[in-house]
Design a binder for these strands. Structure first.
Lengths: 201, 201
DNA sequence: TGTACATCAGTGAACGCGCGTTCACTGATGTAC
DNA sequence: TGTACATCAGTGAACGCGCGTTCACTGATGTAC
């Protein structure tokens, strides 16, 4: 058995590259992040990239899936410990707004993902559906289907609101937008759409 | 008076560059769009860029402001002719989803704008506030302040939902997400948040 | 009327640089016999 | 026990290319006298 490095060394290195990439992609965007910079930060040289990944596109695919999974794990923990209102407040917080590189990959990258290959989009979307499904479990909806629909809209609101707040040139304005988003999101989860449907029909 | 070209020629050229850039930036992203390509599509050579703009960043700033203004004009027209429900349905439509290069600049570019210089963000945000203010005029809220807050959350929902739908690998899934967004957005504008506040307090 | 000069939008070659990708190589470890 | 060879994660120089930016120049028009 050949074993220059300890068992699983290559997997560890690969994971380190993904970890670094997941931060840099979110921080600077995919197109603006170079592989050389990522490899250097991972403590490697240029050439070591290709034994691990077929191409930059392949790294993007795997990195997006990884980052989304991390975000999902964090969400589960918050939901279990503190419930859905806390999850919403955490997502729409100044801490999250300022933690671009470690925050929600959707908020940082979704337009770039939408322009990516179908494989990358498929990888992203699988992760997203799982994420939203977890959110749906904590919604007080009548049926799983309405819960899942409501969760998707709720996440759209959270995602869009965080992105807009991040573009605001003044922190005070950003904060006001986030708070307004929280208010509306909470309203959204406490309304039962089916129960109300006849009200305005 | 020196006048090689008809009066206003330079302004026309400048406008043409911005027009081309506004499409390419939305289509491919700012970082992935080269100035050479933009200038060629505008029927000019590389070197003609700098008599018109100080830098790529300056083009981004002016282009984002321009595209947002165009979007704002279109919104006004739709609202006047067909009302807010039609505006929401138009925004969350497959036509808009597929018209990336001519669609909402926020949906295509907001994470890149959030990473841009403070000047670019300020230019964007001014346009965004005007856009959302117009939306607010058509909301049945008690006060201008609540209307403007509701409009911002509504736009966050529309923006996030369109972006997520664009990332979906299958059109049928995208369409379902858009329809779900419409349903929730309509519910949002027909609910009066202040009137309901005591209901769950 | 003719000539010398000024203006200036746009040309197109060139600058240095970093990109994604390739590849011959290194060197530490293990195996074969 | 010693020597020849295989393995393979990682090295680092090099590839062609397109990037944002600069600049000497063109050429059509107008002005001066």
């Amino acid at each position: 058995m050949t074993m220059r490095y300890e068992k699983g060394h290559k997997e560890t290195t690969r994971h380190r590259i993904i970890e670094v990439a997941s931060q840099r992609f979110r921080q600077d965007g995919v197109a603006a992040s170079g592989l050389s910079g990522i490899m250097t930060e991972a403590g490697l040289t240029n050439g070591a990239f290709y034994p691990h990944f077929e191409s930059k596109e392949a790294l993007v695919r795997d990195t997006v899936a990884y980052a989304l999974n991390c975000q999902h794990e964090k969400l589960k923990e918050t939901l279990q410990k503190a419930g859905i209102e806390a999850a919403i407040r955490g997502y729409l917080s100044m801490d999250h707004l300022n933690a671009l590189g470690k925050g929600c990959p959707s908020a940082a990258l979704v337009p770039e993902i939408a322009r990516a290959s179908e494989e990358t989009r498929a990888a992203y979307f699988t992760g997203l559906e799982e994420y939203v499904a977890t959110l749906a479990e904590y919604l007080p909806e009548a049926t799983p289907k309405t819960a899942s629909q409501r969760a998707m809209a709720l996440f759209g609101l959270m995602l869009g609101t965080l992105q807009i707040a991040r573009a605001a040139p003044e922190p005070a304005v950003a904060k006001a937008i986030l708070n307004n988003g929280i208010k509306t999101a909470l309203m959204l989860i406490r309304e039962n759409p089916d129960a109300r449907e006849e009200t305005f029909r």
